[in-house]
Design a binder for these strands. Structure first.
Lengths: 198, 198
DNA sequence: TACCCTACCTAACGTTCGTTAGGTAGGCAA
DNA sequence: TTGCCTACCTAACGAACGTTAGGTAGGGTA
């Protein structure tokens, strides 16, 4: 059994990815140096190259994992609320996206915050994966609109992007130690579905 | 009259700030080098120090201008719709914030996109200015809630942050060449005020 | 016991970074 | 005409950057 390689918590490659995602989230990709990352995980900068071919490669894997986490969360919300009321389906998916952002490691949060300024060569690789995730949301909303649950006049792509913007930006201010994610998901969904007017 | 100093468009300090804000927006603060900026404005990197004490100083001024633009936009919306219907007041302020983001230079867009990863010493200077702007929104929404126009159950700070997230994130995807800002402001306001449900 | 592979290390490479010191052309004022 | 001020320039500094080559300890396998 592997005893010395994984004594406490994780080590090696996954540990590096975890800390890197957290650092990229806080200081940005270009604002984080490999020596800073190496210090955090307790090794030397050159040693990182045993696990990754380049800094861009490291970022690519983080962005990829961020999408994987979102997709998995979407899967679970889909299977558990496939035939629920429209507003409940939305809430489940909102809750799932927030779970990806806050409850499943720093990958999704790092993704939504660093993707925009990532090097073009990295973005090229990740864009199709992002598109696939966004397409699932668009398709869900499109069907709800076709079924008459969503107003026929609204642009499904616009309301999705507005909703995404609201959820993703919460990484900047929502504190899981002070707020409750279930209640937050309910609040966001209520605002999305019914608005704030009395 | 100053002829040779401002022949075509702007030059000097304002030109530098304009181009820097645009570069920071695209590649991030740490992702933009002073040589890259100097190339863009047609001078040498060292010459930038005639106008700015440091790169951080340049960023500080850009973030400051970003808030100034927002405040000015808020002022105009306030004086022109002080006694209008609640939903129209909101729409005017949404339109004003979008105007700050898209129609008054790159400062506000650069602000909302680079503030999070800015050096701590820079953030410290800018935070009070941000707070002042956000307080005006909070106060406006709080009054609308006190007047019964907004549901008494919602948290005014949460709906403000959700709305801000949605508006600010649009910098990432909204294209002023393809979309109309008036219509976009109306759509965002309708979604905020009444929701998307049929 | 001998060997090998994993997971690092040391030490350095060349490049780029923000920044600075000192120089200079050209317009303006006296 | 002289002198000054503005707005740059050239050239370089030391530090930090991503990256690489070669070495090594230590557990696992034969």
């Amino acid at each position: 059994m592997p005893q010395s390689t994984t004594v406490l918590a994780e080590s090696g490659r996954d540990r590096i990815l975890d800390e890197a995602a957290a650092l990229f989230l806080r200081h940005g990709y270009e604002g984080t140096s490999l020596r800073q990352l190496a210090d955090t995980v307790g090794m030397k900068a050159g040693s990182l190259y045993y696990h990754f071919a380049s800094k861009d490669d490291l970022l690519t894997e983080i962005l990829r994992r961020g999408i994987d986490v979102m997709q998995t969360a979407f899967d679970e919300a889909e299977t558990s609320t496939g035939s629920a009321r429209p507003v409940d389906r939305i809430e489940a998916h909102v809750r799932a996206h927030l779970s990806a952002l806050f409850e499943n490691g720093p990958y999704t949060a790092a993704h939504v915050m660093t993707f925009r300024t990532a090097p073009e060569s990295v973005r090229e690789i990740v864009v199709p994966l992002r598109d696939a995730y966004e397409a699932r949301w668009t398709e869900m909303l499109r069907r709800l609109q076709a079924d008459g649950a969503i107003q026929p006049t609204v642009d499904v792509n616009v309301i999705r992007l507005v909703l995404f913007g609201a959820m993703n930006a919460s990484v900047e201010w929502f504190d899981t130690d002070r707020g409750n994610l279930d209640r937050f998901a309910a609040a966001i969904t209520a605002q999305f579905w019914s608005g704030v007017a009395s």
